[in-house]
Design a protein around this nucleic acid. Structure first.
Ligand code: MN
Ligand code: MN
Ligand code: MN
Ligand code: MN
Lengths: 226, 226
DNA sequence: ACCTAAATTTAGGCACGCCTAAAAATGGGC
DNA sequence: GCCCATTTTTAGGCGTGCCTAAATTTAGGT
């Protein structure tokens, strides 16, 4: 049914537009690192498939059908389960898992998916804090917000970090930032300056510029029971 | 460098012709389940690659170059490590591992290969008793011979079984045949009749026809220290 | 409403990996 | 040494997934 190119396209639409928004040709071209012309060809094919993966109107982008969304979530489930498996079972570091998962997500069977899910205890989040879609297509939800919008003087817990830049992951790891870790925002420096914050129990203060802060999401601290 | 089609072709040449014999177009077509014409095209490409994967003379088949053999062994190493990993870590049964490994062998990185080899303790044989090539391209060797040639009245140990037919593997499993198990050949029935033998400590006598017996290799019993 | 820049689609092309049908080479039997 | 069955190659074609260049559509600014 679905080739690797098709799966990647559906996943990209989901990541750019979510459940019911439309993804643009240009956005997909950027995400997939292929030309806009190639995207147009792919979108036409996906919408003319029977049954269709997407709903597509020329010049107005693509939206996933139920089938398309189910397939996208299936691939994302593979990706995130594999990431966690590589990290926990095969001792991959945080920044190595994404690239390997990007290939393996298309190669594993449903059996493999089930077995690693079982070995991992049916996990809900991957090593970067991203929710792992369940087999039925629902997503574990965790209310979180952008670090950028955090109130100075407050505490929060790291919810998730972007997994696309290995060097950024290495840096975050080196200063102790990972999902579940508590942070305290001291202040936001003026004119879109860096966020000054403390990580965990570390006394050091770190300056987070826009790029770095923009790749982190946080959630309110839960019962800060000492 | 190597696509999946190329890797499969090199592996097939190795399996049909070994290190230094030539594989025929027809043999490869059968093994790869593609047309002879497609094989010819592939062989031409492999021999004209720079550096070449094979040595090829029209109408006289293909022989692996050093590079081609190294690549074939690399893929076979992936395959057999993955089979053992699926069996040991993910609880796959004996007959399920081959199909999954056939896909994954092309998708994993060198890192993945190293990590599963390490988790498994640098194993030398896969679940079917096939030798796992080492990273340097050498093969663990275990002198074995065909069950067909076994002397009636003697004992031996199962060395390896063919892994291509899942139903045969299920059957062998059900009667207790797996690498390392001791067998005793009672007699060979006349006119190419079945081999009558006992498996392990089981009192039952099993009849092995030509198909079944031909898929099993054995080795002399090692120190039968009670 | 129109004009134009940006986004998108169309047109044409290429490599890969496969196919079938037709042509050609091989080699064993005589 | 020739013939013919078998094997192999050549010729031509197809779908996928990508490309570039040219045409077209859209939408924002006035
Ligand atoms: Mn799945
Ligand atoms: Mn992730
Ligand atoms: Mn390898
Ligand atoms: Mn095997």
């Amino acid at each position: 049914m679905g080739s690797e190119a098709i799966d990647n396209c559906l996943k990209a639409i989901y990541q750019l537009a979510g459940d019911d928004e439309r993804a643009t040709t240009a956005g997909l071209a950027e995400q997939l690192a292929i030309s806009p012309a190639s995207v147009t060809g792919m979108l036409k094919k996906l919408s003319e498939s029977d049954p269709p993966w997407i709903e597509y109107q020329k010049h107005h982008g693509a939206r996933l059908t139920d089938r398309g969304r189910a397939r996208a979530l299936e691939i994302i489930r593979h990706h995130r389960l594999i990431e966690l498996f590589l990290h926990r079972v095969l001792d991959y570091s945080w920044d190595e898992v994404h690239v390997e998962a990007e290939k393996l997500e298309h190669a594993i069977s449903e059996t493999f998916e089930d077995r690693i899910a079982h070995v991992l205890g049916d996990p809900e989040f991957d090593p970067h804090g991203h929710p792992i879609p369940r087999r039925d297509g629902t997503l574990p939800d965790r209310a979180d917000s952008d670090l950028i919008d955090m109130e100075p003087g407050t505490d929060a817990e790291v919810s998730r970090v972007s997994d696309h830049d290995p060097t950024m992951l290495q840096h975050l790891s080196s200063i102790g930032v990972r999902p579940g870790v508590r942070i305290h925002l001291l202040e936001r420096r003026p004119f879109d300056g860096p966020l000054m914050l403390r990580v965990g129990d570390d006394r050091a203060v770190h300056a987070f510029g826009a790029r770095l802060a923009g790749s982190i999401r946080i959630r309110d601290i839960r019962s800060t029971a000492a």
